[in-house]
């Protein structure tokens, strides 16, 4: 039945999502439920109904003539227009950037983080080096999930905050892909990683060690060597996600952080074997140097 002439349907109600990080949150709003559903899937445990703390910003997605107008994304002027396909990703990035800006006192690094007991371990490297796959394998071994691609770290204490966007690992469907080619790896499909809700980190933990990941395209033994601290600073700088334009300040913060937290380089071919190696190594390390009070 058609509405009577002159009748205007009420505009659809906007759906609201809150992206929470510690005491900050970002409000995302859209009248497109399918778009919001995709975004909620990508945000995972960071999407909450009842946020607490202070608001770091608002982002709105307005579907218009086959495109989506995004209002409130940092650094993009007042608005930006994207295709429907890319809208959830743009919203996701906008919300993450607003949280990064709100907490620019933290070091933001492209890294996965997982914890065993009361100690956190960071797995740092560019896309395609196996961060998500390694973290997923550690979760399967009972580790606590902090992040699979963004680490938020306090330079002064070396503590890392949970930033538990929904973990996703790349899936190899059988076609030949040169696994030492980052661009080719980025074309691989990603799938969600299942993990129990109670396995998500709830508070910052001290970061015990950094693993810099190097994918070896020839199968072989796993090679772990200490990383000199100054070299660690440079590698962290290459993987920095911090929005600050002040390079000198960022280096000083990374130097402070790298002075506190030792780093190793791990070269591996098989992520499951690397996870087994890391798990055994960390379990031994924690048994030898247990957390105070543990």
């Amino acid at each position: 039945m058609a509405p009577p002439a002159g009748h205007h349907s009420p505009p659809p109600a906007a759906e609201v999502l809150h992206v929470a990080f510690g005491s900050q949150y970002v409000v995302v709003r859209s009248v497109a439920p399918d778009l919001m559903a995709e975004l909620r899937d990508a945000l995972g445990p960071m999407a909450v109904e009842e946020p607490a703390g202070s608001c770091a910003g608002h982002v709105e997605a307005l579907p218009e003539a086959g495109e989506v107008r995004i209002v409130g994304a940092p650094g993009a002027g007042a608005t930006q227009r994207v295709s429907r396909q890319w809208a959830p990703r743009e919203l996701y990035h906008a919300a993450v950037k607003l949280l990064m800006l709100a907490r620019d006192d933290l070091i933001w690094t492209h890294a996965g983080v997982a914890a065993l007991g009361e100690r956190a371990f960071m797995f740092c490297g560019p896309s395609g080096q196996g961060k998500s796959t390694l973290v997923a394998a550690l979760l399967a071994r009972g580790w606590t999930y902090f992040s699979d691609e963004i680490a938020a770290i306090e330079a002064s204490s070396g503590a890392v905050h949970p930033f538990p966007l929904a973990p996703r690992r790349r899936v190899h469907d059988g076609d030949f892909v040169p696994l030492d080619d980052g661009d080719a790896i980025r074309t691989l499909r990603k799938e969600a990683v299942d993990f129990p809700a109670h396995a998500v980190g709830a508070r910052p933990l001290p970061l015990e060690r950094i693993y810099f990941l190097h994918y070896a395209h020839v199968a072989g033994s796993i090679d772990v060597v200490p990383c000199p601290p100054a070299q660690s600073v440079l590698t962290l700088l290459r993987n920095s996600l911090s929005i600050t334009a002040d390079r000198e300040r960022e280096i000083a913060r990374l130097a402070q952080f790298a002075s506190r937290v030792p780093a190793v380089q791990i070269r591996y071919h098989d992520a499951a074997a690397a996870a087994a190696h890391v798990h055994a190594d960390v379990a031994l390390h924690l048994a030898v140097s247990p957390t105070s009070g543990a």
Partner: peptide
């Protein structure tokens, strides 16, 4: 500009935006 990292050093050249690590 330089930053100490334990007994090592990171040097940064703003003119070229390049950073260098130095062992002890």
């Amino acid at each position: 500009m330089t930053s100490e990292v334990l007994d090592e050093l990171v040097a940064y050249a703003p003119s070229s935006s390049q950073a260098f690590s130095m062992n002890a």
